[in-house]
Every structure is written in C-alpha cells, then in structure tokens.
Simulated assay, not measured.
Amino acid sequence: MSNFQESGINFKFQSPKWNVVKYDEHLAHKKVSNALQPTKAVDLLGIHDNRQLFLVEVKNYRGHTHDAETQEVLLAKGEELMRRIAVKVRDTIATVTNSARFSTNDEDFFTRINQLLLDNQKKIVIIACIELDIAGEKEHKARMSVWMQKLKQKLAWLHAAKISINPIENISAVLPDTEILFV
C-alpha cells in the first residue's frame, strides 16, 4: 500500500498490485529536467497488476478558481490547461524511455514501463484529476467533456491511450484499488 499527496489530495493505492512513484519528484525525472529546461512531468506514474500503465496529473484549483493566474490557464475553454497537461504527458514518456538505463533504485520499474509503452496491445491510461469551484454539476460535466476532447486531440499521437478527466469523486472508477480524498 502506498500513499501520495498532491495539491491537497491524498492518493492511497490500496493494493499490492500497484507500483507507483511520484514522478515529478523522482530522481530519474530530475536528472533530465536539471540538464534540459523546461522538462515537465506528470505527478504520478504507476503500474497496476504489472499490466496497465497509468499517468496521473493533478490540478486542484479549489479556492483558487477566480485567481488571475488560474483564470489565465482556464481561458479559451481550457485550451492552455490541456496544452500543459499534454506537454507533461509527452515529456514524461520521453524521459521514462531512458530511465531504466540510469535509475539505480527503480530499474525494474522503468524497464516494465518501457515494455508497456511498446506493447501496442496495452492501452496507456492518462488521468487528469481536476478540481474546480463549480456551482452546477451540469456546467462541470459539460466543461470536463469539452476538456477531454481537447486533451484527446492533443494526445492523438499517443496511439492506444485511454484519456480521462474527472474530479476526485469520479477517479476511483478509472483508477482501480485506490482511495482518493482531500487532505
């Protein structure tokens, strides 16, 4: 069982079937990002049941939805936010491909990630966990639907991917054996 906190949200991976790292803070990512700026990464990188690769990005704007910086990111129907998430996915995939070569403590993990990335029979699951201050559920669902289409367009190059954008109450449906709560 592993616990990770990101942006005020706790991810509790409740099954031994999970192997997860906080990739944006992992040494393998830092080696690349220190040498080549800017290099971005998703928050969580995991393998479930040694068969399914998950990339999870968390954006918690609760209490900040009306801040000027957040408003700038959310402009144009989320175009900038989806671009930022797509860049993180792209950079994560680019950096993990070589992590098995130089990661001294997680070589097996990164080797398995590379195997899953190259296996065109396996879908890569991309999850964007986005929290906003939204009054109406209907408005929230509509926004998430538009954003998901934008993210799918930006990640169309990533063949065999399942892309999901959800608030935390819906993430458990796409992230198995996981409990997700606000801290």
Rank of each mutant, 00 (worst) to 15 (best):
14 Q>G: 01
147 W>Q: 05
122 K>L: 05
170 N>P: 01
117 L>T: 03
91 D>N: 15
149 Q>Y: 02
57 E>C: 05
4 F>V: 12
91 D>G: 13
169 E>Q: 13
25 E>V: 06
58 V>P: 07
124 I>E: 05
78 G>L: 11
97 T>S: 08
73 V>S: 09
47 I>C: 01
46 G>Q: 13
61 Y>L: 05
152 K>C: 07
125 V>W: 08
134 I>C: 02
110 F>S: 11
30 K>D: 09
51 R>D: 07
178 T>G: 05
75 L>C: 07
110 F>L: 04
114 N>E: 08
139 E>S: 11
145 S>E: 15
58 V>R: 09
147 W>V: 04
145 S>V: 04
33 S>D: 09
166 N>F: 09
16 P>Q: 02
53 L>Y: 00
44 L>C: 08
36 L>V: 14
158 L>Y: 06
166 N>K: 15
73 V>E: 12
21 V>Q: 04
64 H>T: 12
29 H>D: 06
172 S>H: 12
122 K>H: 10
100 A>S: 12
164 S>C: 09
55 L>K: 14
2 S>T: 11
98 N>E: 14
112 R>L: 14
171 I>F: 00
98 N>P: 05
180 I>M: 06
105 N>T: 10
84 R>P: 00
96 V>Q: 12
34 N>P: 02
128 A>W: 00
30 K>G: 06
41 A>L: 03
178 T>K: 02
167 P>Q: 03
56 V>P: 05
35 A>C: 07
126 I>T: 13
97 T>Q: 12
179 E>G: 08
8 G>P: 05
140 H>M: 12
152 K>V: 01
167 P>H: 02
151 L>W: 01
42 V>Y: 00
116 L>H: 09
135 A>Y: 15
40 K>D: 04
91 D>S: 13
14 Q>D: 04
126 I>M: 10
166 N>W: 07
71 Q>P: 01
147 W>I: 06
45 L>Y: 00
150 K>H: 03
182 F>D: 05
22 K>D: 10
60 N>F: 00
104 T>F: 01
129 C>Y: 04
132 L>F: 15
65 T>E: 03
139 E>W: 04
139 E>K: 13
124 I>K: 12
167 P>A: 04
183 V>E: 09
39 T>S: 11
128 A>E: 02
61 Y>W: 03
65 T>W: 01
97 T>W: 09
